[in-house]
Design a protein around this nucleic acid. Structure first.
Length: 488
RNA sequence: GAGCCGUUAGCUCAGUAGGUAGAGCAUCUGACUUUUAAUCAGGUGGUCACAGGUUCGAUUCCUGUACGGCUCACCA
């Protein structure tokens, strides 16, 4: 249903009045010569009297308006910032001034005229011409407090962005971060690829999928929960270094660091193991921070964090011992189970040792990892795509890295033994459907049977890294249009 | 999924020990040709989220619903 209010009715009336003055309130184009930022830079030395040789055309949205009878000031905002304009009736003429008087905060205009400095020293465009480029029919949020209501900010991100420059900067930083990651990998010989989002068999992670249906093929399809298995097919095919920024979809709960629709990057490097990937990871993240923020020393929610390599490395078992004093390798199965229960784990049935160790890690260690840390050598039971650790049957060559108490990413020496992989699939598929059971991917096994080189792989959350680098506490604040229930 | 909290003008927020609501900004009218949260004078603007209940009377108390926020749970 269409909204209405007195304020909107007034704007519609003005729209008609402007039309009757012979002005098209929605013209087709405008050609600015400068952004407001360029004016601030190029006209920094301008004098306090308008000089026609120092002219510019700008375009943007009216954010404030101060009328003074036969003249008026306003601030115009474009993609680079705000600039003041000064409109005088004796300069623009009565006809234009009559239209100008009817303009509202929120309207998009173009202004042409000399740049000068006002009595108070503010760089200002003295309008020779003012042109309405788009009439705004909806009043913008209040100029001083901006738009605060979180629900409105998420639902109407356009209003959030126009009112809150900090929010815009967060998303600019996010884009720069993605660009920095892309540049680093391209420079390092990686190829960016695209793999299916609609997958007949989902895999590569333990998560519940969104299900859809293809009409012509009359078959179910799943929105991908990960792109891992497709990228490794490409390693089999001979791409030695590949990556993809992957929008993934997981049909699970939503909270401050989980969104049903989120972005991961996964990358795979042939002939590398997980130690190579650790080095790549710390260098890549440090590069991203350096590029976006100009430093690897960041502050996240009051914590000073150094992203400079090398990062701390310790095994999961070591990390538990460090936090609790307990060496899980010395515990009997029963003692281990009791320890996990003490830590608050909810165990159904006979949990394997590896699961219990992971529970202890999550309970005692994870929330203390503020500085970046690689936690490596994970129990085999929770890692179906990682290669066994050299000389061990119980652990795999896998690491996750943590920064600011957040789990940022996951990597392994990829399992390339097709017989072992088949067994892991079958083991993983035994879980009930409600527990993120694996689907056995025969085509992926066929690919492995052709032979996949030893490979190191990495996946990490782009949204979470963006949170870290922009000091945001909620994933919704780094996603432009977070998923919401429909407005009632 | 659970607990707590919130929803009042376009925006930001007050408020009513239950008697049909206020401020600032915005908006409208008038004055004003260097203001900048412009100023001065005078106005307009509300289904107090929605639906029931209690009550002479509910925006206020109770119950439910919707939407949202925070915390927890789930979650590689």
């Amino acid at each position: 249903m269409e909204d209405s209010s007195a304020l909107m009715d007034q704007r519609r009336e003005k729209l008609e009045e402007i039309r009757q003055l012979g002005v098209d309130p929605y013209p087709y184009k405008y050609s600015p010569t400068h952004t407001t930022e360029e004016i601030r830079e190029q006209f920094a030395e301008v004098g306090d009297h308008p000089d026609e040789t120092q002219s510019a055309r700008i375009a943007g949205r009216i954010m404030t308006k101060r009328d003074h009878g036969k003249s008026g000031f306003a601030h115009v905002q474009d993609s680079t910032g705000r600039l003041q304009i000064y409109v005088r009736q004796n300069v623009v003429g009565e006809a234009t001034y009559q239209v100008y008087r009817k303009l509202d905060v929120g309207d998009v205009i173009g202004v042409d005229g000399p740049v000068f400095r006002t009595r108070t020293g503010e760089i200002t465009v003295m309008a020779n011409e003012v042109e309405l480029l788009a009439k705004s029919l909806r009043p913008p949020p209040e100029k001083w407090h901006g738009l605060q209501n979180k629900e409105t900010r998420y639902r109407q991100r356009y209003a959030d962005l126009m009112m809150n420059p900090d929010v815009k900067q967060v998303f600019i930083n996010r884009t720069q971060m993605v660009q920095a990651v892309r540049e680093y990998l391209n420079e390092d010989g990686f190829i960016e690829v695209e793999t299916p989002i609609l997958q007949p068999i989902y895999g590569g992670a333990a998560a519940r999928p969104f299900v859809t249906h293809h009409n012509a093929l009359d078959m179910p399809l799943y929105l991908r929960i990960a792109n891992e298995l497709y990228l490794k097919r490409l390693i089999v095919g001979g791409f030695d270094r590949v990556y993809e920024f992957s929008k993934d979809f997981r049909n699970e709960g939503i909270d401050h660091d989980h969104s049903p629709e989120f972005t991961m990057i996964e990358l795979y490097q042939a002939y590398a193991d997980y130690e190579d990937i650790m080095r790549l990871t710390e260098n890549l993240i440090a590069h991203a921070a350096q590029t976006v923020l100009g430093t690897t020393q960041i502050t996240y929610q009051g914590d000073s964090i150094s992203l400079a390599p090398p990062w701390r490395r310790l095994t999961m078992v070591e990390s538990i011992k460090e936090e609790t004093g307990t060496d899980v390798d010395e515990l009997t199965d029963e003692e281990l189970r009791d320890a996990a229960l003490d830590a608050g784990a909810e165990l159904e049935g006979a949990a394997p040792r590896g699961k219990l160790i992971a529970e202890l890690f999550e309970a005692h260690v994870e929330s203390n990892l503020v500085q970046p840390a690689f936690i490596y050598d994970y129990p085999i039971e929770i890692s179906p795509f990682a290669k066994k650790k050299r000389g061990s049957e119980r652990f795999v060559e896998r690491f996750e890295f943590f920064i600011a108490r957040m789990e940022m990413g996951n990597a392994f020496s990829e399992l390339n033994d097709p017989i072992d992989q088949r067994e892991r699939f079958i083991e993983g598929a035994k879980k009930g459907e409600d527990e993120d059971a694996l689907m056995v991917d025969e085509d992926y096994l066929r690919a492995l049977e052709y032979g996949m080189p030893p490979t190191g792989g990495l996946g990490f959350g782009i949204d979470r890294l963006a949170m870290l680098l922009t000091d945001q506490t909620s994933i919704r604040d780094v996603i432009l249009f977070p998923q919401m229930r429909p407005e009632s």
